[in-house]
Simulated scan of single mutants.
Amino acid sequence: MAETFFSPCPRGLEALLADELRGFGAADTEILHGGVMWSGEWTACYRANLESRLATRVLWRVGRGRYQGEIDIYKLAYSLTWAKWFTPDDSIRVAVTAQQSPLKSLEFITLRIKDAVCDHFRTVVGRRPDVDTANPAVRIHAFLTRDMVTLYLDTSGEPLYKRGFKTAAVEAPLKENIAAGILRLSGWQPGETLVDPMCGSGTFLIEAAQMALDIAPGLGRKFGFERFRHLDETAWSAVRQAAKGRCKALVPLSIFGSDIVGDQVRRSRENLAAAGLDKCVTLDRADILERQPPSASGVLVTNPPYGVRIGEAEELAAFYPLLGNALKKHWAGWRCYFFSGDMALAKLIGLKASKRTPLFNGALECRLFEYKVIAGSMRDKPRTASDDGTAPS
């Protein structure tokens, strides 16, 4: 029997996620703000967790109803058959989000749902699960609108962008599902040359290499549904084996990374090695303003730094025009993509963005700027009012 699921994702990637989920067997996909509602068999849920590059989680809808006050939410949560899905030995965590709910305290709603689940277990099996807000075995999510509450069990556990292997972090990491979405938006295809000239911890490089080699992003981690009492172990094993069977041999790829900071190159190399991909990607220490492209055409994609500290904005204001000059000088014939929360990039880089795609990195609104660099066409062209990539008024 088909179940109902909701898969949140970074805002701006919902349509791409819906297409991806349909490839795993999802039906009735409904694109919502910040995610996709869909229906499917449990094998589709297993595949979405194991293979989705874009989803943040896969939430299984277990209850839904109208409410007027906290007692209605408690009664709905108490009525669900929690003891059929997990045991009191599994610790729990409850998370609540809301849009236009008249209830004043989400903390109190969280407490009432936790009480309802624990009271259900006391009634059914005589003892209750413990609460663990740091590392729970089972995660329960509630979503409130003006008069409806929906309860979900999290089939993923840790967020799906945590692929399970990255060891060396950077100060402002780019989430893996955003990086995968940006690669999809760029139109990059395996076999086409890809360069990240400010590679940081190597997120774009790892995601691209896994795409090229058809490596499911979740093969190195565990999932929340593996703790469920009704797990179909035979079906789950078949899904994993099928994904493993599609993995291609590890070979050198046309994927290149570099950074001017040697410590960042070290981090990328360490993370690539942890993912088993260090022999597949070429890494160098280089300045983006000086480095040469490895081929006549391809895709350049990067997440440049943007100023948050005193003095950084001034440094970047001087850097962006130099970056534009470097692109015109060295990267003609390339499609170049810059993901940034700094809207000054488009005004100062000196090139006209052919596309500006809004995306969110957590709560931070960003843009993916696309520049198609054509030899000679932009060198002496007068600036226009729309050269920052916005439509002329």
Rank of each mutant, 00 (worst) to 15 (best):
Y337M: 06
S295T: 13
R163F: 05
H141Q: 15
S101H: 04
K75W: 15
N303W: 05
N177Q: 09
G350R: 07
L106Q: 13
F338N: 01
V301K: 02
A274W: 03
L103C: 01
A346R: 05
R112Q: 13
A317N: 10
A249T: 15
E158L: 07
L316A: 03
E171V: 05
A77G: 07
A134S: 12
I310C: 07
G69W: 08
Q241C: 14
V58R: 00
A77Y: 03
W38H: 06
V281N: 02
L323H: 04
D28V: 07
C280Y: 00
T29Q: 04
M148K: 11
V138H: 03
W236G: 04
F339Y: 10
K84I: 02
K104L: 13
N325S: 14
T390N: 15
E14L: 10
I92F: 01
A26E: 03
S101K: 01
P293T: 06
R139T: 11
R112K: 14
L144H: 01
L50V: 05
F24W: 10
D387C: 10
F86N: 03
R221P: 05
N303M: 04
S201I: 04
R61P: 02
W188H: 04
D147L: 06
R64I: 07
E207V: 04
Y371V: 05
H33K: 15
H141K: 13
S52N: 13
A208S: 10
S254F: 09
P382Q: 05
V261C: 07
G362S: 14
W188I: 08
S254I: 09
Y78S: 13
A332N: 10
T155N: 11
T43C: 13
A243M: 05
F360C: 14
I92N: 00
S295K: 14
E14I: 12
Q68M: 10
D28R: 11
F339V: 08
S105H: 13
T193R: 05
W60N: 09
G35R: 00
P252Y: 13
K347E: 14
Y67E: 02
K162Q: 15
V124S: 10
A27D: 12
E207H: 06
C336K: 03
D259V: 00
L103I: 06
G34R: 04
T133I: 15
W331M: 03
A169F: 07
P382D: 10
W38T: 03
K347V: 08
R309E: 08
D287I: 06
W60M: 06
T357R: 15
L205V: 12
I73H: 01
K329G: 03
G69F: 11
L21I: 13
S105N: 06
V261Q: 04
G187T: 09
F5R: 04
C280H: 02
A55T: 07
I349W: 00
A375G: 05
